[in-house]
Amino acid sequence: MSSPMSADRFLGSLRAEGLTVVEVGDWRHHNRNHKGPWGPVHGVMIHHTVTRGSERTVDICRDGYTALPGPLCHGVITKDGTVHLVGYGRANHAGLGDDDVLRAVIAEKALPHDNEADTDGNRHFYGFECENLGDGEDPWPDVQLEAVEKAAAAVCRHHGWSERSVIGHLEWQPGKVDPRGFTMTSMRARVRERLK
């Protein structure tokens, strides 16, 4: 059982992994904690944004929209590999997902197929939104994929987790397809190598 790291430790961990990090507004206190607890944390969830343009993407992820208030993640990874911190605490990114998947993440075992949505993921996962249209055609620059790898590894390194604590939204919630354009199997392999 892991308590979330402090906001300062999160920032420090990302920078120690070699990432370029931009702090957006009062990100340390921008959260949805009034809607429920954040923690214990068990993993890192990767998403794509279905947006184009870094500034617009960061704004949407910070502020959200009428049906889904922000923050929509903790960090936004833009195409240039920069991590923009937009919130810290509970964020509207994971939604309801499969309790069997959560148990597998906690045990760091192979993930079962997600076939139900009965567990609050916003409570248990760090979330990174990645700037991409998610259409399978919008490219993922190498520098962006490297930043996804580093961000996930930074969180895992702090908590003593393996790459099996890194999942995609599509592995958590039935019907989700993100991230689309690379596989989570390949990303976990990259995280595993980095954690060595």
Rank of each mutant, 00 (worst) to 15 (best):
T119A: 11
L133N: 12
H124R: 15
E129G: 09
G64C: 01
E131M: 09
V86W: 00
A16N: 08
V50P: 03
N115A: 11
G89Y: 02
R103L: 08
G134T: 09
E108H: 07
G127Y: 02
G87E: 06
R62K: 15
V22I: 13
E129Y: 02
D98G: 08
H29F: 07
H93K: 04
H124P: 00
N33W: 03
F10Y: 15
I106Q: 12
A104L: 11
G43K: 05
C61A: 05
H30Q: 07
F128M: 10
T119E: 15
A67T: 14
C130M: 06
K109W: 07
T51Q: 15
P69D: 14
G121S: 05
R56C: 00
K109G: 10
V105I: 15
N122L: 10
R90M: 11
K35T: 15
Q144S: 06
D99H: 11
L68G: 02
E137W: 09
G95L: 07
Y88R: 05
F128R: 03
Q144A: 04
V105L: 09
V44D: 12
L11N: 05
S54Q: 12
I106T: 09
R32Q: 14
Y65S: 03
E17F: 02
R56V: 07
E129H: 13
N122Q: 11
G97D: 08
D118L: 04
G127A: 14
G95S: 03
N132L: 00
I46M: 15
E129R: 00
N122K: 10
D80A: 10
D98Y: 07
K109L: 14
L68H: 12
E131G: 04
V22S: 08
T51G: 02
E137C: 06
N33P: 02
G136N: 05
P69Y: 11
L19P: 13
D8G: 00
D8W: 01
T20I: 14
L96G: 03
D26V: 02
L85H: 02
S13A: 15
E108T: 11
A107K: 08
V76N: 05
G134N: 07
T20E: 09
T51F: 12
A7C: 02
G53R: 01
N115H: 10
K35I: 10
W38H: 12
P71W: 12
G39M: 06
P71H: 10
T20V: 14
R32S: 08
E17Q: 14
T51C: 13
D142N: 12
F125Y: 15
D59L: 07
W140V: 11
S6I: 00
P139N: 03
K35G: 03
E129Q: 13
L85M: 08
H29A: 12
G70M: 06
H47P: 06
K109S: 14
G89A: 04
H47V: 05
G87Y: 01
N122T: 10
H113G: 04
N115L: 05
A16V: 05
